[in-house]
Computed example of a mutant assay.
Amino acid sequence: MTIRNKDLEQQALKDSLGAAMKSGDENAIAMALSTFAEGVQQNVMDEFKTYQQTADVSILAKRGVHQLTAEENKFYQSIITAMKSSDPRQAFTTLPAAYPETIIDNVMADIKETHPLLAAINFTNTTILTKMIINKQGAQLAIWGAINSAITEELSGAIGTIDLTLCKLSAFMPISKDMLLVGPAWIDAYVRNILSEAIAAATEEAIVNGTGLSMPIGMNRSVADDVVVTGGVYPLKTKMVVSNLGPVTLGAIAAKLAQAPNNKQRPVAEILMLVNPIDYFTRVYPNTTIRALDGTYNYNVLPYPTLIIQSTAVTVGTAIFGLAAEYFMGIGAGSNGGKIEFSDEFKFLEDQRVYLTKMFGNGRALDDNAFILADITEMTAAVLEVAVNNVVKTKEQTA
């Protein structure tokens, strides 16, 4: 008898979803989303049946089943009623309600709990917004005096906007007839799981590599005011060669990040470093792991506060250094979106129907100096200098 390892199965589905998002193939993304959703649905149904038999409240916490607000309960009840209809397509056209904002808040919380990059940046629920005003010149000093033409001209280039309706993310959700019997709270857990993984997979890829064409602008792209955008695509940044993570190198990186727009400066309290898992273990880990006098090892030890995050979205051989708070990413249901719709784009089993939901958002670095694209192909194991009787000797950090 074969024993299922649900955690491994779920991780494999997440990996497939992430790979599909990175490929950019719309059909592959849709199929990976649907396959992932089927796996989530099966797990929810299994846990619901176990809960019915055992009344074990720990199952609720594990699955993330919440006590719904009155608005959330009403929303899901209307969705369930429409799904049970003999003509769900028609039933859904009469549903005016989009996701309550609290559902999107819960999705964002779920994402931040499991995805460190999205927890580190300025990741915001923008459900009720269409545009976000940003300061393009870093720290802006207040000006005393009369509002005259000179001041107006000085401030005219300081304000920018991010259109939050330009980028659309679609998620497919197959729902079986049995699923409709579990109730709103379990449907909510299913929907949030699908949305959180779909948003996280697509958003992380876009935050790192997005071209700006119908998607966010990635950290690896130049957003300078004079940058040449060709066909809606922003160019890649010029790579900075980083061969080690010593004080001089990190100091140079921090100094570059401290250069805010308009010849201003800003403090750098912590550096964000994004790196592919392969590079982390072959290049970064040997550079940041030291052996203590008691024989134990300490890892991620750097001469300046640095948050190292592994991300498969980062290309092997490169890394991104930056200021996490200077990347804005807004996502939400949108003023005209957030509805769950009947979809016949994919046909599966007879006892389940496929539904589609659309989210809107956008993201970009708030200025061009906030992130550095680095070439780390020359990075090797660090060498420590040790003074013995006033004579400087060297030894491998990993020795």
Rank of each mutant, 00 (worst) to 15 (best):
A252T: 14
D56W: 02
G183K: 01
I308S: 03
E350D: 05
L349Y: 11
Q53N: 15
A324L: 04
D105I: 04
L213E: 15
V242N: 04
G332S: 10
E72Q: 04
Q352H: 06
E350G: 07
I134D: 09
T315R: 05
A381Y: 07
A201W: 06
G160A: 00
T35R: 13
A30W: 06
I128R: 06
S58F: 13
S85C: 11
A370K: 00
A198I: 00
K393S: 08
A32I: 02
N5V: 01
A292M: 05
L155D: 06
L213Q: 15
V182F: 09
V316N: 01
P261Q: 00
N73H: 08
T161G: 05
I147N: 06
Q67S: 05
G138Y: 06
V354K: 03
I159E: 15
A198E: 03
G145C: 02
Q10K: 11
S222N: 06
T211C: 12
V386K: 13
W186L: 00
T211F: 14
C167F: 08
M329I: 11
L180P: 05
T296S: 12
E205R: 03
A30H: 01
D367S: 09
M132V: 11
T238G: 13
N73V: 00
L293V: 03
F346Y: 12
G64H: 01
E113W: 08
K22C: 05
I151A: 08
F342A: 11
I29A: 07
M379S: 15
A171L: 08
V392Y: 11
F75G: 00
A55H: 13
I278E: 12
E396A: 15
A189W: 04
A200E: 01
V383F: 03
I159T: 15
V65G: 01
T203I: 00
F328L: 09
V44H: 01
H115T: 04
T126C: 04
P216W: 07
M219S: 10
L118A: 02
A252D: 10
L236T: 10
C167S: 12
A32K: 03
R221N: 14
G138N: 09
K264L: 02
A387W: 12
T54P: 02
L181V: 10
N276K: 11
A142L: 08
L60M: 14
D25F: 14
T94R: 15
K112N: 07
S343T: 07
F281I: 15
D368Y: 12
N244S: 08
S58G: 01
R221Y: 03
I372N: 04
R4T: 14
S78D: 09
T380N: 11
A365I: 04
F348C: 07
I59R: 02
R364G: 04
E326L: 13
P261E: 08
L356W: 08
D56Y: 04
N106C: 01
L384M: 07
I278S: 09
V191N: 01
P116F: 14
G322M: 13
D368V: 02
T94V: 01
I147Y: 02
A146E: 02
A319H: 03
E197I: 00
L141P: 05
N287L: 04
Y355D: 00
E154D: 13
M215T: 12
F172K: 11
A119L: 07
V228S: 01
A97N: 10
T81G: 04
L164Y: 09
Q137R: 12
I207Q: 07
V208P: 08
L166K: 14
